[in-house]
Amino acid sequence: MRDMAPVTVGVLALQGGVGEHIALLKKAATHIASSHGTTTSSPKGGIIEFNFVEVRTAEQLARTDALIIPGGESTTMAIVARRLGLLDPLRHFVKVDHKPVWGTCAGLVMLAEEASATKQGGQELVGGLDVRVLRNRYGTQIQSFVAELDLPFLGDGEKPFRGVFIRAPVVEEIMSRSAAGESDHVAEPAANGNSNNTTEPVQVLGVFRKPGATGEPDEDVVAVRQRNVFGTSFHPELTDDIRIHTWWLGQVLAAVRHGDLVVSKTE
């Protein structure tokens, strides 16, 4: 076993709710260190430390082990990422290196292989989740809301999570693998036809049922995972509830422990 460098967790800082994520990541890391010390032990038995950074360039991304793409305006993020030459490095990070990535709201849009209700002419995506998201599912800001969500992945008996939905997207379709491959219109040749994973399916980790609704059509998929990629329609970073950040950092640590994620040397 190699020496354990700190795990560098980045937040893509092109625009949007960057500081909010970093604040909750820090709280979650403190929580992990204080209450679940044993779960953070490295293969050598030492404590794994986290290093939280803002990511604006390909060089910074290359030094990052796991990444959050925050909420913001996905059209803006795509345009700015394109101009900074970040789209292909991001695709490589997600779909070739298979490093842990979590997208919230606009970040979920960026991580989808397809998006509908995009601006005229469509928008570029990073991809990684074999899903099609529907942008602005609930309408304009007037229809934004907070709702309690049951999220079984947080563990049995956990109280509901207050999901903040702001002009939120939802997963409108989980695509079959062949369909995802054929419709991969966003990627550059290097990553083209290469959706995230050919063996692992998309898991639905959370649904939102409109109050009073019972049937399937009234359910929206609002949290999904496929291999290394996790996405939520809502904004945990706009609450003071650290549970999802804690869970996700736990997933990152598990990837390190299992050798799926080799931590980069920082200095």
Binding site: Q15, G16, V18, E20, E73, T76, F145, V164, F165, I166
Partner: peptide, 14 residues
Amino acid sequence: FTVKAGLAQMLKGG
């Protein structure tokens, strides 16, 4: 208010 202020937070840096 979280929802109202939250949209502005999503516009930061823009």
